[in-house]
Computed example of a mutant assay.
Amino acid sequence: MMPNKTPTAQERYKDVSCQHGGYWRDDFIDHNYLYNLYFPPEDFFNHCTEKLHELVLNYPVAQNELAHLTGQLIQQPPEQIVVGNGAAELIKIIAGMNRQMIVPVPSFNEYVNAAPEGKVIEFPLQAPSFQLDVDSFAEEAIRRGARIAVVVSPNNPTSLLVPKAELIRLLKILDEHNCILIVDESFIDFAENGESKSLENDVGDFQNLAIIKSMSKAYGICGIRIGYLLTANKHFRALVQQGLHIWNINGFAEEFLRLAPKYKQQFKKSCEKVQEDRDEFYTLLSLIPGMVVYKPTANYIFCRLPDSGPSAPEATERLFVEHNIYIKHCQGKTLPESDRYVRIASRTKKENLELTLALQTVLERV
């Protein structure tokens, strides 16, 4: 039998670029996945270690108690909450309702990927601004008979926020045409004064509003998978809940929900630290000659690479092979010249500086 051959850097890159997680098993710096590096606190891990046997051996609670626990954390009525195994589970259920759905693109791919064929309308965000034109979006939704409209704010991959006043205006327009607006606020905690930009406290005013939030990103708990839907529309909430199985959340996720309220101040400070690192990172990236860097509101930065340098897929591979750093290129996303764009997650100040220097080196060599 031949001994196992150590893979080359190129082979490792090919393997990693086909994965959807599990990066911690590989020795590289991950500027691809988007999560809070400064949360949860060590106390949470110590608690789970002490309770390991109980968490592994016992059934977790079901949906009613999970909604109650989440409601305590976000200070919203539990009867308006559905808790999912990550936001992805909720997105899959909503997209599978067989209703015509409109989604601005580029955006989080799962909304389009999870929809049945012929049931999704892609609404292109116009370069170079990639800002959502609410009036044009509403007009297209109405013209095409959409029953669900999706807006991710801050958007992924652009890291751009849709102003709250614009979303409220959109809600009022769509309400007259029997269209529910899903606002994905998974990255809102990383926006400056994000709480004031969220629609969570406005849910009770609009029957056609549902908010989705992946807690995995903001709370740094990707491995235990929690997301929630918040809506005052009882019928829509019931439809989503019908798509869940009885124990869709594991014991570790339940325990996090029980403990999270005591960490509120630490969570707030962690998000402020992420914002500080990101803003400094934005300044660093903006110094690279020829690079267009979009001012971010989330914990990642959207960039257009200089025309004179390598394409985004080439630059991404070189960064990995030559510098052991992994970022996300946008080739294949629905946007013009997608092979010129990258999305880079902000990490620590030291790692962000190292990434900036490495990327500049890669871009200077055609």
Score class of each variant (00 low, 15 high):
Asn352Trp: 10
Glu317Asn: 13
Ala358Phe: 12
Asp15Asn: 08
Ala260Ser: 13
Asn85Pro: 05
Ser308Cys: 11
Lys349Thr: 12
Tyr282Ile: 01
Lys333Thr: 11
Gln275His: 08
Lys333Glu: 12
Gly22Gln: 09
Thr334Ala: 15
Pro3Arg: 15
Asn250Asp: 15
His20Tyr: 14
Phe45Lys: 08
Phe39Tyr: 12
Gly243Val: 01
Pro7Leu: 04
Tyr35Val: 09
Lys273Arg: 12
Leu199Asp: 01
Asn155Asp: 13
Gln331His: 12
Leu287Val: 05
Leu160Lys: 13
Leu284Lys: 14
Asn193Lys: 14
Ile81Cys: 03
Val82Tyr: 01
Tyr33His: 12
Tyr341Arg: 02
Val82Arg: 00
Ser198Asp: 00
Glu272Phe: 11
Arg12Phe: 07
Lys350Pro: 04
Ser346Arg: 06
Leu160Ser: 10
Arg237Leu: 14
Leu287Lys: 09
Asn46Val: 05
Ser338Asp: 13
Ala141Phe: 09
Ala218Tyr: 03
Lys92Leu: 08
Ala114Trp: 03
Asn64Glu: 15
Tyr219Cys: 09
Ala62His: 13
Phe256Pro: 07
Phe108Val: 08
Arg144Thr: 10
Ile249Lys: 11
Leu171Asn: 02
Pro128Leu: 03
Asn46Thr: 07
Leu285Gln: 03
Pro157Arg: 03
Ser286Trp: 05
Phe130Gly: 03
Leu259Phe: 06
Asp26Leu: 11
Pro154Val: 06
Met97Leu: 15
Gly251Thr: 03
Pro261Gln: 08
Lys328Glu: 12
Glu139Pro: 07
Leu285Gly: 01
Ser286Lys: 06
Ile224Glu: 08
Ala298Lys: 00
Lys350Met: 12
Leu305Trp: 02
Leu229Ala: 15
Asp27Tyr: 06
Ala88Trp: 11
Ala315Ile: 02
His68Asp: 12
Ile301Leu: 09
Gly309Glu: 05
Leu171Tyr: 01
Pro157Tyr: 02
Ser286Tyr: 09
Pro104Arg: 01
Glu351Ser: 10
Phe130Tyr: 14
Ile121Phe: 06
Gln207Leu: 14
Tyr228Lys: 02
Phe206Tyr: 15
Tyr38Asp: 14
Tyr13Phe: 15
Ile91His: 04
Asn324Ile: 04
Pro41Glu: 07
Phe130Leu: 04
Glu255Cys: 11
Tyr33Ile: 09
Tyr33Val: 07
Lys51Arg: 10
Gly223Phe: 05
Phe267Tyr: 12
Tyr13Gln: 04
Arg237Gly: 07
Ser338Tyr: 03
Ile173His: 08
Ile29Val: 14
Val274Arg: 09
Leu319Gly: 11
Thr283Val: 10
Ala138Tyr: 06
Gln126Leu: 14
Gln80Gly: 04
Glu89His: 14
Tyr13Ala: 02
Leu167Ala: 06
Val120Trp: 00
Glu176Gly: 04
Asn58Trp: 01
His31Trp: 02
Leu335Thr: 06
Ile288Tyr: 07
Ala315Arg: 11
Leu170Tyr: 02
Cys271Met: 11
Phe28Asn: 01
Phe130Arg: 04
Arg365Trp: 12
Asn178Trp: 04
Gln76Asp: 01
Leu209Ser: 06
Asn4Gln: 15
Gln76Pro: 08
Phe187His: 08
Ile211Thr: 00
His329Cys: 06
Ala141Asp: 11
Ser311Gln: 10
Val183Pro: 03
Leu257Phe: 00
Glu351Gln: 15
Lys197Gly: 00
Val366Gln: 14
Ile301Asp: 07
Val152Lys: 05
Arg237Asn: 05
Phe267Lys: 13
Leu167Pro: 00
Glu185Cys: 04
Lys213Ala: 09
Lys14Glu: 15
Asn201Gln: 13
Arg304Ala: 05
Glu176Gln: 14
Asp307Ser: 14
